[in-house]
Amino acid sequence: MKKIIIPFTLIALTLFGISCERDTLDEGPQLVDLFADFTFVEGFSVSQKSADFAAGEDIVFNAKFNKLASWKITITGLTSGSEKVIEGVTNELNSSNAKWGGSTTKLPLFKLEDCAVDFWVLEDSTHYYDTVSITGTKVNDGFLIADFESGQLDPNWTGFVQSGANMSFVVSSDTTAAQGDFYYDMGGAVGWDYLIGLIDFPASAYGVTTYPLSDNADNVYFNAMIYNPVGITNGFFVVQFQEDDNGDGKFTASNEDGYQFEIGTTELKPGWQLISVPYSTMVVENQNGNKTLNPDKILQMSVLFLADPTSGYSQAYLDYVIFTENRPLNP
């Protein structure tokens, strides 16, 4: 018995040693990040001075620090005033954390223009400046409903405008349009009705019977850019969707579904704002069809601009109406 005890114990110890694995990473944050003085290991640089984002090009910003640092890059369109902010807390800027594909943080969207690049590091008092040029703007995936870039309304769209005072409902041109140079100006004063005006976007205007969207309402997002003029607080939008549940090519409210959502301009800050709404969150206007949200059966979308008739003049701009799938629009 005694002869087997020690070998048995040694075998058990060996098996214990073999079976144990241990994480060998350092514990806690790196001391260098906490206590070292900040220095650049590699200076701030831009991978290319111009980019055609439409062709899939990116601009990568590079820098290396000796420690974790809080940094911020601001790219400002010198014509549009558009702004892109990239920020992080890392010890390196590279393609994984400082790549720009032409997207926008603050509307409007970038145009073909020169941009100023400003770079700050919180731990460093120096401000770095550079410029880049956009030779092709970013292309967004999705089903574009309207960007008004033809300078006029598509004749296949229909609409209705009340005969109130100071009615605009026109495609306007301005370098500060949310996208491109044109947007749809919806304004007026109607003292007898909430509705000021509306515009319909039938599927037939795009050569299809219904909108070419996914059948999964959770994956479909309605996106639009809305401008709320300073001082206007009484307007609101209602966006309605008519579904062709029975596939007869027309909408019959008595036996098909209609959905809508509403957004008031008081919910928006002044200036261009992007709204993105999952189709799955639309509320029922009438539900006499299959009682299911079917984005792939949308026959027509209508954008109604309304205001309290006692509140006087109201106005808002609409631009870049687009459906995206799987995620909201990343402009």
């Binding site: 350092d26 514990e27 001391l31």
Partner: peptide
């Protein structure tokens, strides 16, 4: 130590 704290 077996592993470093904040450093290797």
């Amino acid at each position: 130590e077996i592993v470093g704290q904040g450093t290797a």
